[in-house]
């Protein structure tokens, strides 16, 4: 069986809730390209994940085009991580956040020498933002500025 088609499903869901027909982003151009400048074993990796992960003590995400993000220190204790989201079954992420925010796996890959290191902080936000304009003009530039400030050599992006 081929992959599940999510676009028609999400379009139907928005229609059912009375939203205007969802205008899906389709890019037919060639995407930008920045080559990796050194082997992974020398790279400092940054990460952003959109599964709605926050650390207890932080304000949780809300469900109405929340374009804020949370900063998670990469030495965080995995036990303080929480998950909140409206568009996926949270049971896996709440019992092991690594399924949408692979913090333990990445720390292990650094110990093993597969990666050079991790940024001092990772970023999390709430996916399912209805307005693609707000992602392009607001969230994406702010995250990009953080990655430049953090001096990372490559960025892993983990949507849900």
């Amino acid at each position: 069986m081929g992959p599940v088609d999510y676009i028609p499903r999400i379009r139907d869901n928005y229609a059912r809730l009375g939203y205007k027909a969802y205008n899906w982003v389709v890019n037919r151009d060639t995407p930008p390209w920045a080559p990796l400048r050194m082997p992974l074993s020398q790279c400092r990796l940054g990460l952003a994940a959109s599964g709605g992960i926050y650390a207890t003590g932080q304000v949780a995400f809300h469900y109405k085009d929340d374009t804020s993000f949370r900063e998670i220190p990469t030495d965080v204790d995995t036990k303080v991580l929480r998950a909140t989201h409206f568009a996926y079954d949270l049971s896996g992420a709440r019992s092991d956040p690594n399924v949408v925010f692979p913090i333990d796996s990445l720390r292990r890959l650094v110990r093993e020498g597969f990666l050079g290191g991790l940024a001092s902080r990772f970023y999390t936000f709430m996916g399912g933002i209805y307005s693609s304009r707000r992602v392009s003009e607001d969230l994406a530039p702010r995250l990009t500025a953080r990655f430049l400030e953090d001096g990372v050599d490559a960025v892993l992006l983990v949507p849900v």
């Binding site: 081929g2 992959p3 599940v4 088609d5 999510y6 676009i7 899906w24 982003v25 890019n27 995407p31 930008p32 390209w33 920045a34 080559p35 990796l36 940054g46 952003a48 959109s50 996916g127 693609s132 992602v135 392009s136 969230l139 994406a140 530039p141 995250l143 990009t144 990655f147 430049l148 990372v152 050599d153 490559a154 960025v155 892993l156 992006l157 983990v158 949507p159 849900v160």
Partner: peptide, 25 residues
């Protein structure tokens, strides 16, 4: 997340998007 990837990449940092939604990506 693909929109974020394009923005970060255009700023000169290589990106990789994980995905379980083939059609969206």
């Amino acid at each position: 997340m693909g929109l974020v990837a394009r923005h970060v990449e255009a700023a000169g940092i290589p990106t990789l998007c994980m995905t379980s939604a083939h059609d969206i990506t």
